[in-house]
Design a binder for these strands. Structure first.
Lengths: 161, 161
DNA sequence: TACCTAAGTTGAAATGATTACAAATCGGGT
DNA sequence: ACCCGATTTGTAATCATTTCAACTTAGGTA
C-alpha cells in the first residue's frame, strides 16, 4: 500500500463512518509512515510544523476515535505516556528502559485462543517485553570502564542511545 | 506462606540488602494480602488508616525500591495509573475496561524462549488482555433494554461493577 | 450551489499521577 | 549511646491527559 497516498486514508475513515478531516488524515498518515510508536507530544510537535493551528487536544481526540475504530493501537507499555501504533496487525513490543525506544516483536501465542474463547470478551491483546535493547547494551558496555551505570526501572530515562 | 507473619517480609528485605522500615513492611504485607492489583492511591488510602503520618511519596519510593529488587511487579496495563502486584511469579493479566478491575490470567507462552535468548536483555514479560469481564458483560446485558451503553476505550471509567 | 446542523477543532483551564527537593527522622553498624 | 547515610515526609513542581465552551467545518439536503 502506498503510504503517501491520501486516498487510502480517506477510504479507511469513510469505511468506518468517520468524518474525513485534514487533521485526521494528517495524523493517520503520520502514524502509518512513522512506525516508531510515537507519543502524543511527538506527533504534535511533528505535525504542528505543517499545520501551526493544530491543537494537542485534536491529537487526543483523533487518536481516541481512531483507536475506537481499530485504526490505531494504544500501547500502555511505558509507565508514563501512551504510545501509538498504526493498524491492527497483532504483534508484540519490546520497550528499552534506557532509551525508551519500542521495537516490534514477531511472536505468535498459540495458547491465546484459550483466552479468546473464555468468559471474558477480549478486545485487545498486548505482549510487552521490557529490558535493554542491543544498542543500549553496547553503549553500556562501552561506558563500563568509566562508571558502572545503574539501570533503573520506574523513572523516565531521558538519555538517548 | 503465612502472609500475615511480619518475619517473612523482614527476611525478604534483608535478603536483598534493603533496610527494614515499618513503611516497607506495611506496604509489602499489604500487597501480599491484597492481590487485586491496587494503584498508589488505593494503597495510600488503605495504609494511612493504620499510619496517619504515612506519605504518598513513601509509597512511590518504596514501590520503586521493591520493584527494582523483584519484590513487586509494575503493571502498565491501564492508560492512566500504574498498578502493582506482589511477587515475581510470571502470569498474565486481563483489564476490564469498564470496571478497571484486573484479573490474573494463567497462560504460558511456549514461544517466549525465543525472545529470552535473543539479542535483547529481557527483564520483564507482560501479557495484557483488555476488554469486558464477565461481571460487566452481565451488567451490560441487564441495562441493554434501558439504553445501549457505549463501551469506550481510552478514558478512565469510574463506574463500578 | 447555498444552507443547516451535528460533529470536529481549538486553546485555556482543570485534573490527576508522578517526581523533585529539602528538612526532619530513623536503621543499623560501631 | 552515637553516627551517618538511607529513608521518610510534605510541599511544590512537572507532565500527561481531560474538560469545557466557543468557534469552525464536513457533508447531507433543499
Amino acid at each position: 500500500m502506498d503510504k503517501n497516498n491520501t486516498d487510502i486514508y480517506v477510504q479507511l475513515l469513510k469505511d468506518r463512518g468517520l468524518r474525513v478531516t485534514p487533521q485526521r488524515l494528517q495524523i493517520l498518515k503520520y502514524l502509518n509512515i512513522h512506525k516508531n510508536h510515537p507519543d502524543v507530544t511527538t506527533i504534535f510537535t511533528a505535525l504542528r510544523k505543517e499545520n501551526p493551528a493544530l491543537s494537542k487536544t485534536t491529537i487526543y481526540n483523533t487518536l481516541e476515535a481512531l483507536a475506537e475504530h481499530g485504526l490505531v493501537q494504544v500501547l500502555t507499555i511505558t509507565p508514563t505516556e501512551n504510545r501509538f501504533d498504526a493498524g491492527d496487525r497483532m504483534h508484540h513490543h519490546f520497550l528499552c528502559k534506557h532509551c525508551n525506544k519500542i521495537y516490534d516483536i514477531e511472536i505468535e501465542c498459540p495458547h491465546l485462543n484459550r483466552m479468546l474463547e473464555g468468559e471474558f470478551k477480549v478486545d485487545e491483546v498486548h505482549g510487552y517485553f521490557k529490558g535493554s535493547c542491543p544498542s543500549c547494551l553496547k553503549e553500556n558496555a562501552k561506558n563500563d570502564h568509566i562508571q558502572n551505570k545503574n539501570i533503573k526501572g520506574l523513572k523516565k530515562d531521558t538519555s538517548k542511545c
